[in-house]
Design a protein around this nucleic acid. Structure first.
Lengths: 226, 226
DNA sequence: TAGATTGTTAATCGATTAACAATC
DNA sequence: TAGATTGTTAATCGATTAACAATC
């Protein structure tokens, strides 16, 4: 659909009937695309209309060759001699990252982390919407967040069968993370974003991303303690 | 101190008078050490006393060679034929990551993200303690979190000169992130953990880690939209 | 046209892995 | 001792970068 794999797709026959070899793109490239996107956003706000790979690279802390290489996997977005149109490139990257679509998400765990995620503006700006919130705490059940009622986890299976979501966000204590993940997988979510500090197992057809808040601090203290 | 660089340190003269070539260790290795640490913690809780590199690797989703190689940068922690003592290895990795030390942190931004970070147990378990909280919102200033009073950001400079911290945690709106970072750098913090979705600049003597909550979702939607 | 900058190739760099001698 | 598993080397793999022809 929105992807164009100039090099790979044109060269060799696309592997096994299916989507165009997504796996050729590394996690590194995807992460950098997120960064380019954010910086382009800021450049646009500042009123800049064009940007070179060198300038974009400088702002993102990478090399200009890296920027051009990353983009080249998806198409030709620039003009030789001139650089890139900020708005066009931003729009193109949004498309590549899937941010033109609307994503629905169910939140598990309405503790302080769940609360922070639910009200995090960055998600909605990107097209990610929480449509359900579940918790086990009777004190929380029944409350409403932006009009969405917090419901018991025990109701999740039937609720989500009725009105499915694409992504499950796990912000429960670590003990219940795997249980929740199992249910989400069974219900057919496409992806799980896990904030519980525990390795969770999911079947192959579910995409998993783990975010561990302590890890960044541990990396920091490693480099600080010397 | 707690580091032993068998290969590097023994081979070549340690570069320029200083700590033993920390820069030889990649960010990848450090991140995996965090994962090993967490898994070892869980193994210990389950009562397991020894573990092989193969088993540890399986639980962490890496290869056994990777595990042994990562550890080999810091010393010999295992016994040929037998594997590793769970408690010893866990303790050794904690030392490597600097988790035996106590780290003091100042939190900037007492919004819902700041709140979640402040009350995140994982940090204290690792030896990271918030000792100060700052915000600009008059509604929040004066409140206490676990006995710590939320103070105006304008007071941060004098407060932190008086009682310094090692790490600054930025959970402000993105507009003020750079200002806060500048002040923290000036006050001589060693590291900054930034949760604001904005690239911030810091001088070379300050270690910076950015955590962008949206990035994990964007990576997810990239792989889902096909 | 001359200067600038892309898209892409080939070279380099660094991280991962396979393999195995050392040794419990 | 025989079997298991480490620590380490050398081979492989993949990601980054330098360089440049294409071209605005």
């Amino acid at each position: 659909m929105h992807r164009k794999y100039t090099r790979h797709a044109d060269r060799e026959e696309s592997t096994a009937g299916g989507s165009p070899t997504l796996d050729k793109i590394s996690e590194f490239t995807v992460r950098r695309l997120s960064t380019y996107y954010r910086i382009l956003f800021q450049l646009e706000q500042k009123g800049e209309t064009t940007v070179s790979s060198a300038r974009l690279a400088e702002l993102c802390g990478v090399t200009s060759a890296q920027v051009r290489k990353d983009l080249s996997y998806f198409g030709n977005f620039g003009t030789r001699g001139l650089g890139y149109q900020v708005d066009d490139l931003k729009h193109a990257i949004a498309g590549i990252l899937g941010l033109h679509e609307q994503w629905t998400m169910a939140l598990f765990g309405a503790g302080s982390l769940g609360h922070a995620l639910f009200f995090h503006d960055g998600f909605r700006d990107d097209g990610f919407y929480f449509t359900h919130v579940f918790d086990v705490d009777p004190m929380k059940i029944g409350k409403k967040w932006r009009g969405i009622e917090i419901r018991p986890v025990s109701a999740a299976r039937s609720v989500l069968s009725e009105t499915p979501v694409q992504i499950g966000v796990v912000a429960t204590p670590e003990d219940s993370a795997q249980e929740v993940a199992d249910m989400l997988a069974e219900l057919g979510v496409q992806g799980i974003l896990n904030f519980a500090p525990r390795q969770i197992q999911v079947p192959n057809n579910v995409r998993l991303r783990n975010v561990n808040l302590a890890m960044a601090l541990e990396s920091l203290s490693f480099f600080l303690s010397s």
